[in-house]
């Protein structure tokens, strides 16, 4: 099964692109540039918001554990997906949200469980695409540590350079 992901180049869905990079060993995803973001699953099912695309990709590659290892981790992943979409993306005044994120990361390497999940991908993507984040990063040491840790790894490096420069 080959999936087609079309992305809006003026506002690339970084979280969904990261998810696509992670699952590409398990399922074929081809990325095309266009005007609107959409994942074409079948003629009757398409997903056009970044969280749905990420959820679907995590579910077609369950062995990667991107949606968490059990029901409680799934619920935490859901929490962070909404947090990234509603509290970070396009929201001015990041301070309150960053403070919450900083507390959550104080004793953690990854946001949920002990491995990478959609929570890390979506929050990293929201910060990477946010113009306020670089200025605020010094004040939130745990978020900064976690952000740098992820940023140094493939595919975060490649997605970061490829799409963020284009946006600017």
């Amino acid at each position: 099964m080959a999936l087609n992901l079309t992305i809006n180049t003026s506002n690339p869905p970084l979280g969904a692109l990261l998810a696509a990079e992670h699952v590409k060993g398990s399922v074929q995803v081809s990325v095309k540039e266009g005007n609107d973001t959409q994942l074409h699953v079948s003629d009757s099912i398409q997903f056009s918001d970044a969280n749905s695309i990420s959820r679907y990709l995590a579910r077609v590659a369950p062995a990667l554990g991107l949606y968490g290892a059990n029901m409680m981790e799934q619920t935490e992943v859901d929490h962070w997906l909404e947090f990234s979409a509603r509290r970070l993306c396009g929201q001015p005044g990041l301070t309150v949200a960053l403070d919450e994120l900083n507390k959550a990361l104080s004793l953690r390497t990854f946001l949920v469980g002990h491995a990478l999940t959609l929570a890390d991908l979506s929050i990293w993507a929201a910060l990477q695409g946010h113009e306020e984040w670089p200025r605020q990063s010094e004040s939130f040491s745990h978020v900064n540590r976690w952000f740098s840790f992820l940023s140094s790894q493939v595919p975060f490096t490649s997605i970061g350079t490829k799409y963020t420069s284009k946006k600017a």
Binding site: M71, M72, Q74, T75, D78, H79, E82, F83
Partner: peptide
């Protein structure tokens, strides 16, 4: 084990499961 979960949608997902 779990962070506090925000949003009625996410709590609903949890309870439904």
């Amino acid at each position: 084990n779990m962070c506090p979960i925000e949003g009625e949608a996410n709590v609903a997902r949890f309870l439904f499961k």
